[in-house]
């Protein structure tokens, strides 16, 4: 079994940020492995532990994103592929999917795992775009994976329940973070990751694919604000009844 996991480096969404003249400014440049991709790596590792096989982490990004490949390898991925892109350009899911498709075109594998979305943009498009570009069957929003023989059984969270889907190989899955708790790399993992190979890819063909952007960001703005309302502290019986009355009489929502 050969698994590829597509991983992305994302800014830390918990870090403070500001908007100046429509531009997004983050107070730190702390970056991390996209949480959904960490779950995808974890899912691949669990399958590998049971059934064997090889896991390759693939990332498109600027130089500083290489540390994120190390993180995936410290978790246990066997090797990495680094596809270099310039930093100061805005790429959308469409262009990343084109570039990944160009990379995977002549590769052999059983399954590609993606995250279900990027934590910073919540786009959720790249995975199924890539599947379509490669002509692969796919399942999105996976919350559980297991093998039935050589075929993956994927449990996905649908609108009203969970759908269990048989996904033949080669195929693509996008992973929810609700499927597992990604392991924290231990010291041994971190040491080993330094000896694991990372292939750097800089081909004109792949770079050309990046120009496929279809959408652009015009700017950022604050969310229409919600102010903190009134806090009720004191004797439980009294404040509970008071708020209940207000919801009826003032807010008219009962």
């Amino acid at each position: 079994m050969k698994f590829y996991v597509c991983i992305k480096q994302v800014p830390d969404v918990n870090a403070p940020l500001q908007i100046k003249n429509g531009q997004l400014i983050q107070d730190t440049d702390r970056n991390s492995l996209n949480a959904y991709d960490a779950s995808a790596v974890e899912a691949a590792l669990v399958l590998q532990e049971k059934h064997g096989g090889e896991i390759v982490a693939v990332l498109i990004g600027p130089d500083k994103a290489k540390e994120t490949i190390r993180k995936a390898m410290a978790m246990g991925a066997d090797s990495g592929v680094f596809i270099h892109s310039e930093t100061d350009t805005y790429y959308d899911s469409y262009s990343y999917a084109q570039m990944l498709a160009a990379y995977f075109k002549n590769k052999e594998f059983n399954y590609i795992f993606c995250g279900k979305q990027s934590q910073d943009t919540d786009a959720g498009l790249t995975g199924s775009m890539l599947a379509e570009l490669l002509g692969l069957p796919y399942v999105t929003n996976a919350v559980g994976l297991e093998f039935s023989g050589d075929v993956l059984l994927v449990r996905r969270q649908g609108d009203t329940g969970q759908e269990v889907i048989e996904l033949p190989s080669p195929g693509l899955v996008t992973c929810s973070n609700d499927m597992n708790d990604p392991r924290i790399p231990n010291l041994k993992g971190i040491m080993q990751s330094k000896r694991k190979p990372v292939e750097s890819v800089t081909s004109d063909e792949l770079q050309a694919a990046l120009s496929a952007v279809k959408t652009k960001i015009l700017g950022y703005e604050e969310k229409p604000g919600r102010e903190a309302g009134k806090k009720y502290e004191g004797e439980a019986d009294e404040i509970a009844r008071q708020v209940a009355r207000i919801l009826d009489e003032t807010e008219n929502v009962i």
Partner: peptide, 28 residues
């Protein structure tokens, strides 16, 4: 959550909910 709540009730839910439910029943 209190930063975005219109009405924040500070207290133990096990103590708040019974009278809250009771009062809402009356309102209903």
């Amino acid at each position: 959550i209190f930063d975005i709540a219109d009405y924040g009730i500070v207290g133990d839910l096990y103590k708040i909910l019974p009278p809250f439910i009771d009062e809402l029943k009356k309102v209903k």
